[in-house]
Amino acid sequence: MAAVRKVWAQLIPIAGGALASQARAFERAGVEGVWAPQMFGAPFATLAAVAPATSTLKLGTGIALAFVRSPLETACNAIDLDLISGGRVVLGLGSSAQSQIEGSFGSPYGKPLAHMAEIVSMIRAIAAKRSRIAGQRSPITASRRSICATSRASALAGKPPRYRPPSRGAISPP
């Protein structure tokens, strides 16, 4: 018996009704999930628009640029999207090209492997609601983090976020 292949599709920002219709068509066709890339804007809004229109389709950021927003903001977006979607989020992060990160977004690129490893560890710590997260670039304390994780406590009913750990593409574990 042949293995069943899991197929994912790509979504780009289009008018809300058309976006929802396209996502429902993917779901009916048996597509496992959809990826929303970060071309100019973050992929979170596109996926949030699709979430209420579908019930089984996994929603992936493919790929959200890790260096252009704080780990706190990325974690909060993933937690919110996970809440809206009922636990169907797959967080994909990437470094992009140095010229795009520094030139287009005005963010520091640094050493991409170390920078990515730090960002992923900080996002995981925020999702786990740790009280202090130390990083080379920006330590996050409970008071700053409370904007995201603590305010979601009633919505999550004390349960940890259900989104899958961030994927790091071609980067091997540190």
Rank of each mutant, 00 (worst) to 15 (best):
29 A>Y: 05
52 P>M: 09
38 Q>C: 10
40 F>G: 08
18 A>N: 14
48 A>S: 15
41 G>E: 12
35 W>Q: 04
66 A>I: 03
56 T>K: 14
63 I>P: 01
45 A>F: 07
31 V>P: 03
65 L>N: 10
25 A>P: 00
25 A>R: 13
21 S>Q: 15
18 A>C: 07
39 M>N: 12
20 A>W: 00
51 A>F: 06
46 T>K: 00
51 A>Y: 05
45 A>G: 05
72 L>S: 09
24 R>E: 12
19 L>C: 00
36 A>Q: 06
55 S>D: 13
53 A>H: 09
23 A>E: 03
73 E>M: 13
21 S>R: 14
22 Q>R: 15
59 L>A: 07
54 T>I: 10
22 Q>W: 04
66 A>G: 10
67 F>K: 06
49 A>W: 08
25 A>K: 12
60 G>V: 00
18 A>R: 14
60 G>I: 00
69 R>N: 09
20 A>S: 13
37 P>F: 10
37 P>S: 13
26 F>S: 03
26 F>P: 04
69 R>S: 10
58 K>G: 01
22 Q>F: 04
47 L>F: 06
58 K>C: 06
23 A>C: 07
37 P>M: 14
55 S>M: 12
66 A>M: 10
48 A>I: 09
23 A>W: 01
30 G>Q: 12
55 S>W: 09
63 I>F: 06
45 A>Y: 01
44 F>K: 00
68 V>M: 07
72 L>M: 15
70 S>K: 07
49 A>E: 09
71 P>C: 02
70 S>N: 11
19 L>G: 00
61 T>R: 02
30 G>D: 08
43 P>L: 11
61 T>I: 06
69 R>Q: 10
58 K>N: 12
39 M>H: 07
72 L>V: 07
68 V>T: 15
42 A>T: 15
32 E>S: 11
72 L>K: 07
34 V>M: 06
18 A>G: 14
27 E>W: 05
32 E>D: 12
66 A>F: 05
56 T>F: 10
63 I>D: 03
24 R>S: 11
22 Q>H: 06
54 T>Y: 08
24 R>L: 12
66 A>Q: 06
45 A>V: 14
73 E>V: 15
67 F>I: 06
69 R>W: 03
59 L>W: 01
70 S>M: 09
28 R>G: 06
43 P>R: 01
31 V>L: 11
69 R>D: 02
20 A>H: 01
36 A>G: 07
19 L>M: 07
43 P>F: 04
65 L>A: 08
47 L>H: 03
24 R>H: 04
59 L>P: 01
20 A>V: 05
55 S>I: 05
44 F>L: 01
38 Q>M: 13
67 F>D: 05
40 F>E: 14
72 L>D: 08
32 E>Y: 10
19 L>F: 00
43 P>E: 08
71 P>W: 05
54 T>C: 15
65 L>Q: 11
63 I>Y: 01
34 V>I: 09
66 A>C: 13
70 S>Q: 11
52 P>W: 11
38 Q>G: 02
51 A>Q: 05
31 V>Y: 12
49 A>C: 14
22 Q>P: 01
24 R>V: 11
